[in-house]
Each structure stands twice: as C-alpha cells, then as structure tokens.
C-alpha cells in the first residue's frame, strides 16, 4: 500500500480541528451527563414522588433509542416548533440526553451497593440525610460506580462519531468529505483511526488502571 504522505500532511490541520470538535462535544456531553445522571440517581435512590416517575420514563426513552435518531429530532424536528439550536448545541444536548441515563444507572448501582446497615448506623448517629449522603453513602458508592462511569465515558466519546449526521465537521465528517472529494481513501481512513486512537487509547488505559485499583484496594473487604 503506497500512502500519499503529502496528502496527509496537507490535511492534518483539518483533522486536528475535527478532533478538537469531537473532544469538545464529548467533554460537554459527558460533563452534563454526569450532572443529569447524578440528579436522576438521587431521585431514583430516594424514590422522590413524581420526579421518580419522570426519571424512569426518561431513562427508558434514552436507553432504548439511538443517538442519531435523537439528534435528528433535536436538529431537524425541534426548529419546526420554534426551538432553533445550533448543531453543536444539539450535539451536546443529544450526548447528554443519551449519557445521562447511562450515568444515572452507574451512579445508582453505587448507591444501591451500600449496605442498609450503613444507613442505619448513620441514622443512629443522627447524621441527617445530607451528611449521610456526603460522608457515608457517596464516598463508598463512588468506588462501585467508577468502573461503570469510565465505561460510559468511552462509550459516549465513541457515540459522538454520529454527530457528522447533523453536518458537524467532526472526524467522521472530514473523512467522508476527503474520501468523496479526492478518493484518498486509505490515507483518510488511516488518519481517522489514528485520531480516534489518540483520543480513546489514553482514556481506556486510565479507565482500566482505575478499575483494577478500585477492585483490589476497595474499602477494606
């Protein structure tokens, strides 16, 4: 396979810009996913009336529909009722809508893993709900949640690849563009793979190290 290095060099800046966009959307989406997920997890854990029902419906809707369809609805559908969002905003909202439910389930599984006796001990010490959450539940839950959260982070970064569907110039979009314009398929695909590896490999390594640490260090037992 003879690679056209000149071509790759020429379009490198385009890929870098695209990678930055991918990272930006992923970062924003993941950040808001964590917030959404945390709120939903709390609502589900304490079974707060009404909100609990809403959270369940949201989680099921989000987990059982593809991101691409969510994006199409946000980007092409919503403007028809006057809600006009930029493609980038749609992408971040879409990733958040998808990621929030995944984060909620991971965080909640951490909460659920806490032994009931821990809550009773906290109650017997008269800690109150806020302190119980902050000092007892959360620190223990996070250790259980982290592997799931890490897996979600990687999953969400990968999912951002579909934002090219709403004309955002991310890595996929640039690649498709270059293939269509110049037929330098091998080079464009190679750069696509390399750029995704640059973004995902370090995160995946950090995630597996974190997971191993937590599994063996844990809290005592």
């Amino acid at each position: 396979m003879q690679l056209n290095w000149g071509f790759m060099e020429k379009y490198l800046p385009m890929y870098i810009d695209a990678a930055i966009l991918t990272v930006k959307i992923a970062f924003g989406g993941i950040l808001f996913s964590l917030i959404t997920g945390f709120i939903c997890a709390i609502v589900r854990y304490y079974k707060i009336p009404i909100l609990n029902g809403i959270a369940i419906v949201y989680i099921e809707l989000s987990r059982n529909t593809p991101l691409l369809v969510q994006l199409f609805f946000l980007y092409f559908g919503l403007p028809k009722i006057g809600v006009v969002l930029s493609a980038e905003a749609c992408a971040i909202i879409g990733v958040t809508f998808l990621g929030g439910s995944y984060m909620a389930e991971s965080i909640r599984s951490g909460f659920e893993s806490i032994d009931k006796v821990q809550l009773e001990s906290a109650a017997s010490l008269d800690l109150g709900p806020w302190l119980t959450m902050k000092e007892v539940v959360f620190p223990q839950a996070i250790a259980v949640s982290v592997p799931g959260i890490c897996a979600n982070v990687i999953f969400l970064i990968k999912e951002t690849s579909v934002v090219s569907g709403i004309a955002l110039a991310d890595l996929m979009y640039v690649t498709k563009d270059l293939i269509g314009l110049y037929y330098e398929t091998d080079e464009a695909l190679l750069m696509l793979v390399i750029f995704y590896l640059i973004i995902l490999l370090p995160i995946s390594i950090i995630a597996s190290v974190l997971e191993r640490r937590l599994r063996y260090a844990g809290f005592g037992d």
Binding site: K158, E159, S161, M172, T185, D186, L189, L192, Y196, L201
Partner: peptide, 19 residues
Amino acid sequence: RIMPQLVLLFIAYFGVTRA
C-alpha cells in the same frame, strides 16, 4: 471495542472496497 462502530463501518465500506 475502542473504535466507534461508525469508524468500522467506514473502513469496511470505503476502505476494504478499495484495498
């Protein structure tokens, strides 16, 4: 696992055809 499925799709659809 590490590659987005869309990237794999692109490789199969655009890359393999050519290679």
